[in-house]
Write a protein that binds this DNA or RNA. Structure first.
Lengths: 192, 192
DNA sequence: AAACATCTAGAATCTATGCTCTAGATTATT
DNA sequence: AATAATCTAGAGCATAGATTCTAGATGTTT
């Protein structure tokens, strides 16, 4: 068997860099140029452009989830949720390529139009997160209602993401984590 | 002179509807189909696809600014800022097509790569808003620092936009305005 | 070293869409 | 009614970029 000159991860790294610069308008030719490969070699690893991008997205989301779940392990549910909120910002600051890659798709839409080979992975990628957020909602509020469930999601995920989004293609200001924590604290309090 | 069968606004309406459904992947052919025109008629009005989209963006932004500035006319600066924050959500709820169209571009990037015919309009479209926000920062805090200026922008604009963004392609929940007001109140308090 | 599997190469093809072009229709003006 | 200006029509062109194809290189196994 021949030795792989261009690895899957190497190609994804190049793709991430291109996504950081050109967003969803990445071109296969640019990715190929960046790794020093002809386009054919890209297609040897990935069935299509779409498949490549979905794999990139999956890899970045997994990397993020690791950090995100770690931040949510505190005993105190409020602290855990605020830690998760804050980690959204710090991850974006520390891993701008992954953050940009994650912005390529939103899971809900992706499940519907993804290459078959990725569908399962995409469908379940958020399961563990949802589970942990449910637990924390339970711990934080005692009785969980639909509104409280959504407040938790907004405080720990959607809100923080909204705050960093403007900085995805730029530098994250150092005071942003404090803003996110203040905001999420206020949002969680709406459930009391 | 011939009577225009397809008006500029009519074409933009169709484009907005298409943007709401397909985002920035709008195709000229779809817009044409929606107004019942051949593509040639579209190009009779707009020099290029880009120009059409920029005009659409400008129209939506202007519509939004009307509502946004009206919400910010209160004497009490805190009330004015929170009113503006809230109006971001209510406008999105009430005018989903315009909201989706506004998401096509971000001004900063657009100024750099816009057709010449639109550059001036794009460059100055936010001037009035920035002026009002400066005034309100002054009234709210007394002494204005860089951080306070940014807190105001985040509380009245970026933050609220982040909260509604997930609902741009969906329905805005009725409790979202309350979330935004709570969050923005907390953000503004960081400047005290 | 022969046979095999895998990977690289990059030119050639395919496709989707933006855009152009010219003929003719429509309405205002005189 | 004649003229002129503007607009519609939609087939066809142009281009960017994704994808395919096949020859050959490279390393692996026996």
């Amino acid at each position: 068997m021949a030795l792989a000159k261009f690895t899957t991860d190497g190609i994804l790294d190049a793709a991430a860099e291109e996504v950081r610069n050109h967003g969803s308008a990445v071109r296969i030719a640019s990715i190929a140029a960046r790794v020093g490969a002809p386009t054919g070699s890209i297609y040897h690893r990935f069935g299509s452009r779409e498949e490549l991008l979905v794999h990139l997205w999956l890899r970045s989301v997994r990397r993020f989830h690791e950090v995100y779940l770690a931040a949510g392990r505190s005993e105190d549910p409020e602290k855990a949720l605020l830690g998760m909120a804050e980690s959204v910002v710090t991850f974006t600051r520390d891993h701008p390529q992954d953050a940009a890659s994650m912005a390529l798709f939103r899971q809900k839409r992706l499940v519907e139009n993804t290459p078959d080979s990725c569908r399962e992975a995409v469908a379940h990628i958020n399961d563990e997160i949802h589970e942990r957020l449910s637990e924390l909602a339970q711990l934080r509020y005692g009785r969980v209602t639909e509104k409280r469930r959504q407040l938790v999601r907004i405080a720990a995920a959607d809100g923080p993401y909204g705050f960093v989004r403007p900085y995805l293609w730029d530098t994250v200001p150092e005071w942003l984590p404090a803003v996110v924590v203040a905001s999420s604290t206020a949002v969680l309090a709406l459930g009391d």
